[in-house]
Design a protein around this nucleic acid. Structure first.
Lengths: 244, 244
DNA sequence: CGTTTCGTTGAGACTAATCAAATGCTGTGG
DNA sequence: CCACAGCATTTGATTAGTCTCAACGAAACG
């Protein structure tokens, strides 16, 4: 079920799918036709390959819907070090500030299909439908809550707590039940995890090793995790929140 | 210019002022009368004394407008340690999640006047005015941006960078120009600063001492700061963002 | 199959936390 | 106005935890 894929510049624009998922996931079912078509004309629907940064050099705030795949939102801090502000997965709606002072970059962890909008007209349009704007507001407040939880983790957690909390969050978001545990395939590298939790790659590696030795999880290759003892992981996470 | 102050329970409800400031600061000037009066009946306008927690035990998400004074939004993490998610000052609008799992508490740093709303009807009502809901959305996105900046600080900054960045942010928010520097009166304790930056009180104290020895600032009592060399402070903050 | 990137492991350095104690401020009652 | 009690803040000594540097092993890629 795919068709009409046209190259524009280096990006590949497809006229189907990503927008439809956006519609199904975000827009209310009873949205009137004219409004829908305005959303459609506002959307830039593109496929992004692993490692690419679809929004490079955008001069306006953007709102991006991830139809499939996964991305990271990276803030560029001092001297080469990066802080990953969050990971996004299918059906997430993420707001990306204009490429200004301390630039943010959205970067694909896997091949993705996304629908991207300029924030100003997007909110303008959304504002015309009470139900819709409230739904979007709720997503924004969710992001805020999420970010606050992340602050707690970053400010207060030990390396162990951070890793345990991270794995639990991932299991919740993209894990599949398996026996009495969960199976997760992580699309991000150790460096990404480190940059997300404010740790060094070596520390991430060591902590994961420790959890493996404590039989709380098994790994398979570098991406596949079997979390066998969720309760014990939760204990190691302290009562830190499950972050992104 | 104050009148009609009535005690209700332990809180003191005033029927003026805080709501008017909310109206002037947040609501559009041309808002129609019926809508305005609905906002008014939604608002709970109270005076809060230093140290009090106005929202204790609220079971719904709240939106709070700080008309005067200052507050801290505290997340309760593990074993007694607290993470301060943000400080609020006059004219700030802050969203406070329901008092659930890892409870958030809004706590007054000084005597405050606030207007508090249940989030659901508040957004419902705001959603009926395109311009208004967009303005509120923008505030929410500002909070999100703010929180993301804070994540960067927490994740990547050294103690020195955190303190320097914090002082710069405070100077920007509540400081007054003084000579070629700024004068700031901090309403929060060392512990609050520590809990906000993910440091210990001792480290906060030591870092401030270092900045004083380096002649970047002077202190007067425990709350008054004279930041004499903003540029040098900025340098010490790295290119970390100015957080809250 | 060779090359390169990514991940793991080890040893040592360094930052910030913890523990302990002294000093300074603030508010209260005499 | 002063003395005092109770905290808040500062300072010092030690320790724990994480980063850095360095080397090795494993997986991905052409």
């Amino acid at each position: 079920m795919g068709m009409a894929v046209t190259p524009i510049g280096r990006a590949i624009v497809s006229t189907f799918n990503a927008f439809d998922r956006f519609r199904a996931e975000v827009l209310p079912g009873d949205l009137d036709e004219s409004c829908l078509s305005r959303f459609r004309s506002l959307a830039r629907v593109i496929k992004v390959r692993k490692g690419e940064t679809p929004l490079a050099g955008h001069s306006d705030d953007q709102v991006v819907f991830i139809a499939s795949g996964s991305t990271k939102l990276v803030a560029h801090a001092s001297k080469g070090r990066e802080q990953i502000v969050g990971f996004q997965f299918a059906n997430d709606l993420v707001s990306v500030p204009a490429d200004s002072a301390h630039a943010y970059t959205l970067s694909a962890l896997q091949d993705c299909e996304i629908a991207q909008f300029n924030a100003a007209p997007f909110f303008e349009l959304a504002g015309q439908q009470t139900g819709l704007v409230i739904a979007i507001m709720e997503r924004a407040l969710d992001s805020l809550a999420h970010c606050r939880e992340k602050s707690i983790t970053l400010g207060r957690g030990s390396a162990q707590e951070k890793i345990a909390g991270f794995l639990l969050a991932m299991a919740k978001r993209i894990g599949a039940p398996e026996g009495k545990g969960h199976r997760v395939i992580l699309p991000m590298s150790r460096r990404d995890i480190a940059d997300s939790l404010g740790l060094s790659v070596e520390t991430v590696s060591r902590q994961i090793t420790q959890l493996r030795l404590a039989s709380l999880l098994d790994t398979d290759g570098r991406a596949i995790y079997h979390l066998s003892d969720i309760a014990a992981l939760r204990a190691r996470a302290g009562n830190l929140p499950a972050n992104t």
